[in-house]
Design a protein around this nucleic acid. Structure first.
Length: 202
DNA sequence: CGACCGATCGTCT
DNA sequence: GACGATCGGTCGA
């Protein structure tokens, strides 16, 4: 088990980093408990030229400021007033790339995940979809700006390898407002994994 | 099944 | 004052 160094996130190719994140493990240690889950689905947001990105056109606000920091930080924001969506900031300072973690497969601390989500049983919906991943792992907007070198929130490599033929790409979900950019194949997921979210947008 | 709808609030206009 | 990088429940076929 090896914690990914900040240099992993600070490289330039957000699509490459997104693919490499598949199979890695998110570990959270908040208020004394540990939960972890293997990433099975991600989406890349390609900075200022990507209409689907919060930083499109160099847009810069209090909320999105964190995206302009050097890679390796968490960017968590509230969606629809209810869901906390967990992103990883990548690339160098002033280049606002980010990767949204959309689904994961529970490993440690399933009891905690059930408690946090209010679910009774562990099934494939526990960490399916970005809102559920954050909820199960206890990640909230207050964790925005946390460094992924912080012991409380890290991503690790346990040697699990995903072969390229098991990585599927598709358009991103829920970004119809992005026009042509909504069609870009910036979503990546592990083939046949039951935790991968379906998506309800045509 | 699929379509629809309500929840709920920070952020930006 | 409008609107989301969503989810889960309900309703009807």
């Amino acid at each position: 088990m090896k914690i990914l160094p900040l240099s992993f996130y600070q490289r330039g190719d957000v699509l490459q980093i997104a693919k490499e994140l598949l199979g890695k493990i998110i570990i959270t240690k908040f208020i004394g408990n540990e939960t972890s889950a293997r990433i099975v689905e991600v989406e890349a947001y390609n900075g200022v030229i990507d209409k689907a990105s919060h930083a499109y056109g160099g847009r810069r606000t209090n909320r999105t400021e964190i995206m302009y920091a050097a890679g390796g930080l968490a960017y968590v924001y509230l969606c629809y007033g209810i869901h906390h969506l967990f992103n990883v900031v990548t690339n160098a300072k002033e280049i606002p790339h980010a990767i949204l973690i959309r689904a994961a497969e529970p490993m440690k601390g399933v009891e905690w995940m059930l408690k946090r989500t209010g679910k009774k049983i562990h099934d494939h919906t526990l960490t399916k979809g970005p809102g559920n991943v954050s909820k199960a792992l206890g990640i909230q907007t207050i964790h925005t700006g946390f460094s992924l070198s912080d012991p409380a929130l890290q991503i690790a490599d346990d040697g699990f390898a995903v072969s390229s033929k098991n990585i599927i790409s598709s358009p991103r979900i829920g970004v119809n407002y992005a026009g042509e950019d909504a069609k870009l194949p910036y979503r990546f997921f592990i083939k046949d994994n039951p935790y991968v979210s379906g998506g309800k947008v045509k």
